[in-house]
């Protein structure tokens, strides 16, 4: 007997219900009719968000400088912190952005875009807390999910799925267990351009990009 023939024969009986198809058509037509956002308005909104992000970044930098000037790293120190962060944590940096800039420019760029998301985290617990704060914060823009290492637009999670994932991540805790299970790759993108990649296995183990620490998600 031929496996393919038997499989095709049996699976051809699996079909979407006719009423469901009608419902789908209606849904699609509704989606088609929904007006696209105006390009002009889109540009205005993007510009407004950009100005806001830059202002907040600038004010944060100014305030930090005023309130605690001793802790303000110089350009060289900041660049070092970003490329070789604490606890072997690294970020998804855009190397092209860094190329050809002197250190003072680099510091300003990094400060504005909030790339040092892990802040002063010195332990795995602190790192996890900061990660969860980011994931539950208002600046989270979107999350990609795939079982391969490359992300593209098709891997974008729906808002409902992303919300559910974020809810799960809030229950993460440190564990001594080994990371096991089938990997899913995730990339969280924030409004200021920051990205944080992480892995979550089907057994509920979580790993953050470039760290060896394993967390358990219940």
């Amino acid at each position: 007997m031929n496996f393919k023939d038997e499989y095709q024969k049996s699976f051809s009986e699996i079909k979407a219900d006719e009423n469901f198809k009608k419902y789908l058509v209606a849904q699609m037509n509704m989606e088609k009719k929904r007006k696209k956002k105006s390009g002009y308005m889109g540009v205005l909104v993007a510009a407004a968000v950009m100005v806001l992000v830059v202002s907040v970044g600038f004010m944060t930098g100014v305030l930090r400088g005023k309130t605690n000037p001793d802790t303000m790293p110089d350009g060289n120190q900041m660049a070092q912190d970003t490329t070789e962060p604490q606890d072997n944590i690294s970020l998804d940096l855009n190397n092209e952005m860094m190329a050809g800039q002197d250190m003072s420019e680099t510091y300003v760029e990094l400060n504005f875009s909030g790339l040092s998301w892990y802040g002063d985290a010195k332990s795995n617990e602190e790192l996890l807390t900061i990660f969860v704060l980011y994931m539950t914060g208002d600046t989270l823009d979107k999350i990609y999910c795939t079982d391969a290492e490359n992300f593209d637009e098709q891997d974008l999670m729906s808002e409902a799925d992303a919300a559910e994932l974020v809810e799960r991540l809030q229950n993460a805790e440190c564990t001594e267990d080994e990371y096991t299970g089938e990997d899913m790759y995730y990339k969280a993108v924030f409004e200021d351009g920051l990205t944080i990649k992480f892995w979550l296995s089907d057994k509920g183990y979580l790993k953050l990009q470039d760290t060896k620490t394993v967390y358990k998600v219940h």
């Binding site: 999910c145 795939t146 098709q154 729906s158 799925d161 559910e164 799960r168 899913m184 979550l200």
Partner: peptide, 19 residues
């Protein structure tokens, strides 16, 4: 191929949901 890829990826996301 695009539809199949999106179906697979959406399925991947779906089966990892808590629900």
């Amino acid at each position: 191929a695009w539809l199949l890829k999106v179906a697979v990826n959406t399925g991947n996301t779906f089966v990892t949901t808590a629900w």
